[in-house]
Design a binder for these strands. Structure first.
Lengths: 344, 344
DNA sequence: CTATACAACGCAACCGGTTGCGTAAACCGG
DNA sequence: CCGGTTTACGCAACCGGTTGCGTTGTATAG
């Protein structure tokens, strides 16, 4: 019969015994606390190293109350939000940063509008910090989380609420630069076909667009902004009206790739050429942006940076240290076929 | 209302005191164990209900060794795998199912090829079960996880390895049905432009394709299979050769939407009409599939079902109960413009 | 050469449930 | 009415670290 040796996990007391000290001393050593002699400390660390000893996070959690865990909340309702393909990259970067810092990340699903389960789990699991990658700035969950003292950071939304940090892309500058691109390539009749007004990113994009238009002065003949849902069909319908008009724009800056796709559909069905008759830009660099006809000039979000920054912000908040609580990260314009080449 | 001593969390001993019993009895009551009188049990449950008492999972974990936690592993290398947009939906369904069963899910990122950190975290955190949504059937991580006795299920890959379950889509039938669709709409010269041979899904799709061709007998004039990477440009190059030949196929079944996109590009540049001159189908129903010209007929995976099934399979494995360990779920064909309408 | 201050470390009581074991009371057939 | 079970429950020892406090031993001041 095969002798199955129960490899008993070593406990802190085993290490203590090997080192000829008490468990408390080992604990202090591992946590870098004072009260341990120099050579004793070295001997203990040596033994820990040799035996590959690792603290049991559960036991530690029970006595300290800290879990070395971050949570990220997935809203299951609003599936159109979650299905947005930015999430895998975002979460990957977040997880990577967390791992490096010795944290694990808990994936919470927020079903329906119920924040209760999330708050509940955060307290029960003693989660150290929470990332909300898909919550609006007015989401009641935020209040509840700060209410229980959980460090919280929003992604993609900005807020002035006390005690909550956020990291967002620079929508403002991105929209500004796209508009500038239109002007630089000779487009003087502009339309911003933006997403819904209640989406904060859209407000910022609006601001960037108008800032550029104002600064351009006579270089722009006409400019206006229209709101549509983030829906290709709705965008097509609206674009048919806009582009069917004799005073049609020669450049359309869109609030998302899905809207831009709708505009290009409309242009095609009206017999207009893109970008010759009308230039089009999107937002997000969705996968289909490289596959439209023509390919779509758009804006790519710095997802890796966002994830990493969110994690670091949380660590700072947890340790109470000073650190920026509001971060805006630069975006990248992806030049493709839906805009004319810039004249250099 | 009864005055609770320390404002804050009640412990099991507080409940015991209120009920006039010992902590052990409360514990037995909560876990449905025998050894508690009928009326005592009711009284205790009543009090638990009243005070909204909830067990501390950390403490329970420490003494039982079980964590009520599932882990899902994200490989960070092979970003093209993780970036595949099926993940958000998959993970959403998984999380939802886990939540309903009172489990939480831990998100592990597997950096580089290092399985060590994953195994490490699984043991340290006492994870009850692991989902591998992006691991090949030969991934060494599988061996290591089963080695430490962690219930493991694969998603999207099949294996005969002892002690590991899997759930996959019915690629075989899907490919068969697409091929059947080609034949039913009068396409007799077929090509399967499949993905790499080492991808198990591609093997299954190959099998389905050939099964249909064999069964069709004289209904098919020619049929062949070609392998390309999951890359639109590579697919375009290959498709230019295939479609440029005088004996070009009238139907091309593709191993992915990205490949199909490449084929349609090639067709357009050769002046061939889709689907009139050549019908094309994809796989996955990526977001851009609804936005190609023409829109792409493709196959949608049952992501919700897959997630839910994986969770349930893990629960069964954890409790040691009997349950199917190998599940194949049916897919759905999304009919769009790249194939002719079926003659009914 | 004492008195005082510290540094180094052991002890034991936590953290909040779980569980084996012991015991008193209730129940049973004879 | 009695011995033998069964049932209901309390007790206390865990699970594996952490930490306040008390006790040494030694360095420094007076």
């Amino acid at each position: 019969m095969i002798n199955v040796k129960k490899e008993g996990k070593l406990t802190i007391r085993d290490i203590a015994a090997l080192a000829g000290v008490s468990a408390g001393t080992v604990s202090r050593t591992m946590n870098g606390q004072a009260g341990v002699g120099q050579e004793t400390r070295q001997r203990i660390q040596q033994i820990i190293e040799e035996h590959r000893f690792q603290v049991d996070p559960t036991a530690r959690m029970l006595s300290t109350g800290r879990s070395q865990t971050l949570a990220v909340v997935f809203p299951l309702h609003a599936s159109e939000v979650v299905m947005h393909p930015i999430y895998p990259a975002l979460i990957g970067a977040l997880g990577d940063a967390a791992e490096r810092a010795g944290y694990d990340i808990l994936l919470l699903t927020q079903s329906a509008e119920k924040a209760a389960h999330v708050v509940d789990t955060v307290t029960r699991r003693r989660v150290d910090g929470v990332v909300l990658p898909a919550a609006g700035p007015r989401d009641p969950l935020i209040k509840q989380l700060t209410g229980i003292g959980a460090p919280t950071v929003l992604i993609g939304h900005r807020t002035n609420r006390e005690g909550v940090g956020w990291v967002d892309s620079d929508h403002d500058s991105a929209a500004h630069d796209l508009t500038r691109l239109m002007l630089d390539t000779g487009r003087r009749e502009l339309v911003l076909l933006n997403g819904p007004a209640h989406v904060s990113a859209c407000k910022l994009r609006s601001a960037g667009f108008w800032k550029c238009v104002q600064a351009a002065g006579d270089a722009v003949t006409s400019a206006r902004e229209i709101r549509v849902p983030f829906d290709t069909d709705a965008a097509t319908a609206e674009a048919l009206k806009i582009l069917g008009d004799p005073s049609r724009p020669t450049g359309v800056v869109c609030g998302s790739d899905t809207i831009a796709a709708g505009v290009m559909d409309a242009a095609h069905s009206l017999g207009l050429r893109v970008p010759d008759d009308v230039a089009v830009t999107g937002f997000d660099d969705r996968s289909f942006a490289a596959r439209t006809t023509p390919t779509l000039t758009t804006v790519r979000m710095p997802l890796d940076d966002i994830g990493r920054t969110a994690a670091q912000m949380l660590f700072a908040m947890i340790s109470g240290g000073p650190a920026p609580r509001k971060v805006i990260l630069p975006t990248e314009i992806i030049l493709r076929g839906s805009t004319p080449a810039r004249e250099d």
